[in-house]
Amino acid sequence: MNTIKNKDLEQKIMNLYLRHQKQSESMEWNFYEYMPWDKGQSFSTLPYDKSQNTLPRELITAIETSMLTELNLPWYTTFLNNMFTGSLEPLQNFVRTWVSEEDQHASALETYLILTRNADPKDLTVVKKEILTTGWDSVLSEPLSSMVYTSLQELGTVVFYRNIAKYAEKYDSGLSDLLLRIAKDESSHYAFYNQVVDAHLELNPDLIVHVWPVIKNFKMPGGSLSDFDDRMKIIQKAGYGPDEYVNQVLEVLIKRWKIAKLEPATPEGKEAQINILKYLEKIKRINARLKK
């Protein structure tokens, strides 16, 4: 069962894309404006030392992990470009727009870490090489599944940046402002992807069969890092962990797509609907037990 191809759907998605384009033009920004340039010093005259860190470990880890995830842009771009080839034209156009908007996030986060001496440039080079050489492989093989994935990933990123920005406020208000600004871009991307999924489900509720496998197997793209799980345990202290994913991402999208109210006609669609709702309750129970 492939992504629906009809004029009504294509027009709806084109309208969403044009709205995103217009919004993006009004939201244009340059990361240079958010950098604390006055803090920059030559590493030749003043070599890096960990004692120069001004942020707690969990905040540094959060920023660095976000930077590395954003850095994998070439792999995500290639995947989405290939996935949407021959699909709805607005989706192909959006990928190109998305690339131009995502590009500066990694640059902003890396520049901030180096300028403020909250990371060793040599160590950053090593982990950057690791994630780029490891790449990113996805088992997704259908355009709608990809959009379900990116909806979860983009909303997760929005929540991540907003929560980390709140935590960062007491250490560096400038960093908090930067993270909130990046979150605005991510929020715009999330809005597009989740509305595209919504449009598909409204036209054909049985397309829910493409939603369930993604939810069941979802992992953030930064998972290709060898120490990703360790990083996420550290980052929890800064405001993003399993609870935030379930309550602020997964449950939000399940409600947003009206999963409980859909009326699939096929046995496969009905089974997928039941599985999604059961999975949400199961993972909420597991998280509740882990907190005790």
Rank of each mutant, 00 (worst) to 15 (best):
K129S: 14
M27W: 14
S24Q: 14
T125I: 07
L88N: 09
L109E: 02
D8Y: 10
G86W: 09
L91A: 07
Y34T: 06
E110L: 12
N15C: 09
N15M: 11
S44L: 14
E70K: 01
L80M: 15
F79I: 13
S44I: 10
T65S: 12
Q11T: 13
L46P: 01
N53E: 13
Y32L: 15
V99R: 08
A108C: 12
W37I: 09
F94H: 07
E130T: 07
Q41F: 03
W37K: 12
L16K: 08
L71F: 02
L115N: 04
E25F: 10
Q21D: 11
S42V: 00
D49E: 12
K39V: 03
I4V: 10
E102P: 10
I114T: 06
T45H: 05
P56K: 05
V99H: 09
L109N: 01
K22V: 03
D123E: 14
T61W: 01
S107W: 08
K12R: 15
T69E: 10
H105L: 02
S42Q: 01
M83V: 08
F43Y: 14
W98T: 00
L59Q: 03
E130G: 04
E101D: 15
S26K: 14
L55G: 00
K39F: 05
Q23I: 12
T65K: 02
T116R: 04
K50G: 11
Y17H: 13
S100T: 14
S24F: 08
S44G: 01
E10R: 12
P74Q: 04
D38G: 07
M67G: 13
N93I: 03
Q23R: 14
S107L: 13
E33D: 15
F84P: 00
N53S: 11
Q52I: 00
T85F: 11
Y112T: 02
T78F: 10
S51F: 07
F43Q: 00
V127D: 02
E110N: 12
E33H: 13
S42A: 02
V95T: 12
F94G: 01
S87E: 15
E64M: 05
T134P: 02
P121Y: 04
G86K: 06
F79T: 09
A119R: 09
P47M: 08
N82T: 09
G40M: 10
